[in-house]
Write a protein that binds this DNA or RNA. Structure first.
Lengths: 122, 122
DNA sequence: TGAATATATGAATATATATTCATATATTAT
DNA sequence: ATAATATATGAATATATATTCATATATTCA
């Protein structure tokens, strides 16, 4: 007897194994749209240079030069990274003359950094 | 008189403009190593599929099939993403027969997700 | 033992992104 | 007006990563 179907190794994509658990999970599962926004925020935090920039701003405001100097990286690189952080509203900028001062945008950011630090340090 | 130097447009990488602020920032600035670990954790959270997987696990445990079914993605893709989450200790797996159940690893993860959701929803 | 099923994973490809370089813009001082 | 300086940004390159496909592994059941 011949079998024209290719051998199926995984059925599970077409049906849930635990319908009750899945029904409950539906209540907390976020939409694709919201997941994308959340992911974009985490993405902005997902670079060592940006993490260092943010931790340097935990208690003081700094200008671009200060940050480039502290991190030993180029002004251009810092500006590019600050743009990412600004776009995601993680930092805020204010101009004074030709100097631009950056601060953390709000306390959420401090919390996120602190939780992540807690997590990696067990 | 001739100037053999190429025109310098940016001095600020070589000196801080606000030494006092920089000195204060040094206290909170994390090391490169720690920044890399923190960044890796955020990186694991920085994908819409992984965010949805994590939010689906906020209150219940689910097996791989359940998650593939809920998200409408392939079992392979889910397994690959779960590996990332496992490696960063964001989820934990337990086997029962041929089914593997996943849960959030600890409450830090819940907090991180919640803070990020707060942030994107203003 | 062999078939079925749940999960994991290596390789390949396509896409995203971090840095550098060059240069533009904005502000101040001469 | 011109020079100097702080910052921003476009283009290019190099590296990381998400998904797919094929297949391997582990467990159960007949």
């Amino acid at each position: 007897m011949l079998n024209l179907m290719t051998k199926q190794t995984t059925m599970c994509e077409n049906q849930a194994i635990h319908p009750d658990a899945v029904a409950a999970a539906m209540d907390t599962l976020v939409t694709n749209d919201l997941a994308q926004n959340v992911a974009r925020t985490f993405q902005a935090l997902a670079d060592p240079t940006r993490v260092r920039l943010l931790t340097s701003l935990l208690t003081v405001e700094l200008c671009v030069c200060d940050m480039a100097y502290m991190l030993g990286t180029s002004q251009s690189a810092v500006s590019h990274q600050l743009r990412v952080l600004r776009d995601l509203k993680l930092v805020r900028a204010r101009r004074s003359g030709r100097v631009i001062y950056y601060t953390l945008d709000d306390d959420h950011i401090r919390d996120l950094l602190q939780k992540a630090l807690d997590h990696v340090q067990h």
